[in-house]
């Protein structure tokens, strides 16, 4: 049976991890390569690097981080943040990334999904979306925001469900669903949003934004029907280790790789 993936996400700028505490077995918690290797040893199923600089200098640094990580970490690696062209994607894939994640650039130019998928295969192209609940809508609806890195982001008027379905038609092989309402709150993923997207698309859906407890990860899978859960703070701040999370999920009947 296919296991549910547990994915730590590392925000990187200038070649350094932004969040992160000092672990006992880790000399430098700010080094993305060392942190990726550490999570790999803990049993992470994939690693996501998210480039929050997204300047061209930053991307060169990111390429170097990806290369050094791919030399020693033999699990899948996804890179996102600031990738705007097929050439940007190619450079990350050549550096050793298995998948590239695009967000704002895909909203501005949906053909980027298709061009990436035609060139590298759908399995390489991850659409990441930032969605916010539209108040007082029944049934529930969510709106896509872009440029969420800075100052709350820009509303697009685009419906999250419609965008997810369209992105898959265009060639996205996986969708990361990030809830703007839940992100950073540590009060749980938006499971209604997750379920709405997951039931509507044929590709795997990754839950993102809001994880605070192991129960939250469980609910993302059970109620949200997510195929994978991505989390940052709970791992970086040492609230739980990946192994603890996996043991917990396994004890509640969720298939995980132990």
């Amino acid at each position: 049976m296919l296991t549910k993936r547990i994915i730590p996400c590392l925000d990187v700028t200038g070649g350094r991890v932004v969040k992160g505490i000092k672990y006992r077995n880790l000399q430098d918690a700010g080094d993305p390569v060392e942190l990726a290797a550490f999570y790999n040893e803990q049993g992470a199923d994939e690693i996501v690097f998210y480039d929050i600089t997204a300047s061209s200098d930053g991307r060169e640094t990111m390429r170097d981080v990806v290369e050094r990580t791919a030399d020693q970490v033999f699990i899948p690696l996804t890179v996102g943040g600031g990738l705007r062209t097929v050439d940007d994607m190619r450079r990350m894939l050549e550096a050793g990334a298995d998948k590239v994640s695009i967000n704002t650039a895909a909203v501005l130019d949906p053909d980027l999904i298709t061009h990436g998928a035609e060139r590298f295969g759908s399995q390489c192209i991850v659409l990441s979306m930032d969605a916010k609940r539209i108040p007082d809508e029944h049934p529930l609806r969510w709106e896509i925001f872009t440029h969420t890195g800075a100052g709350g982001g820009k509303a697009t008027g685009r419906d999250a469900l419609e965008w997810a379905v369209q992105a898959v038609e265009l060639g996205a092989g996986e969708i990361v669903v990030n809830s703007i309402d839940a992100d950073g709150t540590q009060t749980g993923y938006d499971v209604e949003l997750l379920r709405t997207i997951s039931e509507a698309v044929t590709v795997p859906v990754v839950a993102s934004g809001g994880a605070g407890t192991m129960e939250d990860l469980y609910q993302a899978v059970i109620r949200g029907k997510a195929d994978a859960v991505l989390a940052a703070s709970i791992f970086h701040y040492g609230t739980y280790s990946i192994r603890e999370v996996k043991d917990y999920l396994a004890s509640r009947g969720i298939p995980v790789r132990l």
Binding site: L2, T3, K4, R5, G173, E174, T202, P204, R257
Partner: peptide, 8 residues
Amino acid sequence: KIPHMGWN
């Protein structure tokens, strides 16, 4: 879900 993506 297709692709079959992950650890099995």
